[in-house]
């Protein structure tokens, strides 16, 4: 597993990355079963992601990128294999513990934003804090700060449908970072955006990684984006090829 790090394309000095492993995937396999067919979406995936690392995942459509990210984010369980996050085993966690774990440790960004259209921007961003012990005032404050980081301070009373795609994705980022998670999982965050907007989003993520040390795993179709990250993993037909 260590040799993955040796092969990886590191842009910055990452000598301390080898010491702390943030996400460890061991022999992950995922099979989707329906009545008629079985799809092997992932097979024998072994991947370690260091604390503070910015990793990108590429591969053709349908090769299992989203599946892998969902498994890392504990949104879906693997058919086989182990996931450790911050050296903690995750397979025995109850629904409630999983929810808390996701709430504290993880932030998600989706290709189609997944904002709640009936809620104002600020309420959308506050959402993860609702499931923590916070007061309304704290929530407001943290959400406002998060929106400032993505440059949307002047849009907090808007509804998502009143925003452009790039703005919506920035709201989604604010929502992902508002609870200060150690890990951000982004599934094609720039997939629906033109390149200018995509670059804006990418810059926000890079800064987040640099300044706050947030570990980021990003699925992307864009080679240019991928090359701005520390390391690139390629998938093909559910297997790691690089």
């Amino acid at each position: 597993m260590d040799n993955q790090l040796n092969h990886s394309q590191l842009i910055t000095d990452n000598s301390q990355l080898t010491t702390h492993k943030m996400i460890q995937l061991k022999n992950i396999e995922k099979v989707y079963r329906t009545d008629t067919i079985e799809t092997l979406a992932l097979s024998s995936i072994n991947l370690d992601i260091a604390k503070g690392e910015f990793l990108s995942i590429m591969g053709p459509s349908g090769c299992g990128k989203s599946t892998l990210l969902n498994i890392m984010g504990l949104l879906d369980a693997p058919s086989k294999g182990d996931i450790r996050i911050s050296d903690q085993k995750t397979d025995h966690l109850s629904d409630k513990q999983l929810a808390q774990f996701r709430n504290k440790k993880l932030g998600f960004i989706f290709q189609s934003y997944h904002l709640i259209n009936d809620l104002q921007v600020l309420d959308n961003v506050e959402l993860p804090l609702l499931y923590r012990d916070t007061t309304a005032k704290e929530r407001r404050q943290l959400a406002t700060e998060a929106l400032a980081k993505v440059g949307l301070s002047n849009r907090i009373k808007h509804f998502p449908t009143q925003l452009s795609g790039g703005q919506r994705q920035r709201v989604a980022i604010a929502r992902a970072i508002v609870g200060r998670p150690e890990i951000i999982l982004a599934d094609e965050p720039t997939g629906n955006l033109d390149s200018a907007m995509g670059n804006e989003i990418m810059d926000i993520l890079i800064n987040l990684n640099r300044n706050e040390g947030t570990t980021i795993v990003m699925v992307t179709h864009d080679e240019n984006m991928a090359h701005k990250t520390h390391r690139l993993v390629r998938l093909f037909d559910g297997s790691q090829v690089q």
């Binding site: 409630k96 999983l98 929810a99 996701r102 932030g107 998600f108 997944h114 709640i116 499931y131 923590r132």
Partner: peptide, 16 residues
């Protein structure tokens, strides 16, 4: 259901 998915992803338990 999409809202439910989002809430679960960001830390709402089924019970909540």
């Amino acid at each position: 259901s999409s809202e439910i998915g989002v809430r679960k992803a960001f830390g709402a338990s089924s019970k909540t």
